[in-house]
Design a protein around this nucleic acid. Structure first.
Length: 297
DNA sequence: AGCTCGACCTGCACGC
DNA sequence: TGCGTGCAGGTCGAGC
């Protein structure tokens, strides 16, 4: 689930649950996530209030009153659920999830359970355990190993044709790989790279450098920027509703209502309609790429 | 300095 | 029904 739009949606759900509340207790499953937890993980969380929640790329950041930051990444299969006593439910707004905090967090893949003030419980569930939890002093967050090489936020001002022009110049790497590179644009994943390339009519196999061959930014880079922005914005809209639905169904329904134009649609007609192409699946740097060979050049 | 690819995990859908 | 295979929304870090 987690590319930028999903992480952004999770952030919006976590805010009303976490901001202003104190972490009263921490329970871990005993299994490590992608990396070992940092030293004294539990005691560095316990007793501290969450001041503010942020997102950077696909990382969720909880700024603590202790001047440390809790860094969280959902990996491939990470999920958060918020549970609460009836009394706290009304504070959690539209992202309020599930009633009853008492037995939540006992599932086989529930690896981190945070008991917050007001009877709110946050459970991090992650079957594949590719997720990350780390702690870092706020003042050195930018120098953190996981943070320091992250590129521009695609929804911010940093993403523009000039930026891509500079980043693509001389690169003999396919567009697909370059757009997945978090050092250039932060937050795109396999699905939205496929979708953005389709919308902008660019082939995932095209070498990035071919779009930066002239002195001035190529018009196609402008189109790519607009496509990336539009796709992410739409997905954040839809992601919100999918998450609400997912949770409303008590975790049983994981179905995506969202219809992708190309992702996971091999052999179907290209939705662009007039091009008459069929969606193909190829493998690039070990991962599936879906695209229309007719209208993506 | 840059790039590709293996490794980290579990679950699920598929074909035999 | 059971088993083997391949695939999955990410990305670090080893090795060229």
């Amino acid at each position: 689930m987690p590319e930028l739009p999903e992480v952004e949606t999770v952030l919006r759900g976590l805010r009303p649950a976490m901001e202003g509340r104190t972490i009263e207790d921490v329970r871990l499953s005993g299994k490590h996530l992608r990396f070992p937890y940092p030293p004294r993980f539990k005691s560095r969380l316990r007793g501290h209030r969450v001041v503010r929640m942020h997102r950077r790329a696909k990382y969720l950041l909880a700024e603590l009153e202790s001047s440390e930051v809790l860094i969280m990444h959902l990996g491939m299969s990470g999920r958060f659920t918020v549970h609460s006593d009836a009394g706290a439910a009304h504070n959690l707004g539209e992202f309020y999830f599930e009633q009853g905090a008492t037995h939540a967090g006992d599932g086989p893949h529930d690896h981190v359970v945070l008991d917050l003030s007001d009877g709110v419980r946050l459970v991090y569930t992650d079957p594949r355990r590719f997720g990350i939890m780390d702690l870092c002093p706020a003042e050195s967050l930018g120098a953190h190993k996981l943070m320091r090489n992250i590129g521009v936020e695609p929804l911010g001002n940093g993403l523009n044709a000039e930026h891509l022009h500079l980043a693509f110049a001389g690169k003999r790497t396919p567009l697909k790989a370059v757009l997945l590179d978090q050092r250039i644009i932060a937050g795109l994943g396999n699905i939205y790279v496929c979708e953005a390339l389709h919308r902008s009519g660019l082939s995932p196999k095209r070498l990035a450098g071919t779009l930066a061959a002239h002195r001035k930014p190529d018009i196609r880079l402008e189109r790519l920027v607009l496509s990336i922005r539009a796709i992410l914005a739409e997905a954040i809209e839809a992601g919100g509703s999918t998450l609400r639905d997912y949770v409303g169904a008590n975790g049983a329904s994981g179905e995506f209502q969202q219809r992708f134009a190309v992702y996971d649609r091999e052999d179907t007609d290209c939705p662009k309609g007039d091009c008459g192409g069929k969606i193909r699946r190829i493998v690039q740097s070990g991962r599936s790429t879906f695209y229309c060979p007719r209208c993506q050049r």
